[in-house]
């Protein structure tokens, strides 16, 4: 069965740490980093990257468009 795997890249220095992406993720992939970026904001990162399906929800709600999304189809 074909499965979908996704991945996101967060523009760490542009992230303002609003956490809206975390609530929008249906597979609970994202968390806020303990570290902060140059502006002092905690930034989003993939805590469970293997659960990401590349659904683009996080990038859709991100007010600063800091998320880039990639997706592939995996055939078992």
């Amino acid at each position: 069965m074909a499965k979908v795997r996704g991945a996101i890249v967060v523009d760490v220095e542009r992230c303002k740490g609003c956490e809206l992406c975390i609530g929008s993720c249906p597979t609970d992939v994202l968390r806020m980093a303990v570290d902060v970026n140059g502006k002092g904001y905690h930034y989003a990162y993939m805590e469970n990257p293997e659960a990401c399906t590349g659904c683009v929800n996080c990038a859709t709600v991100c007010p600063d468009t800091v998320i880039t999304v990639y997706r592939i189809k995996v055939v078992d």
Partner: peptide
């Protein structure tokens, strides 16, 4: 996964390089 051919969403090129001046979480950016 993170390869140009697998790209499904990126920031539109019509945005300038300037970071948005809005507060974190503001709907204006969307």
């Amino acid at each position: 996964i993170i390869k140009p051919e697998n790209l499904v969403f990126q920031k539109t090129k019509l945005f300038t390089d300037k970071p948005l001046s809005y507060c974190p979480g503001c709907g204006h950016g969307v």
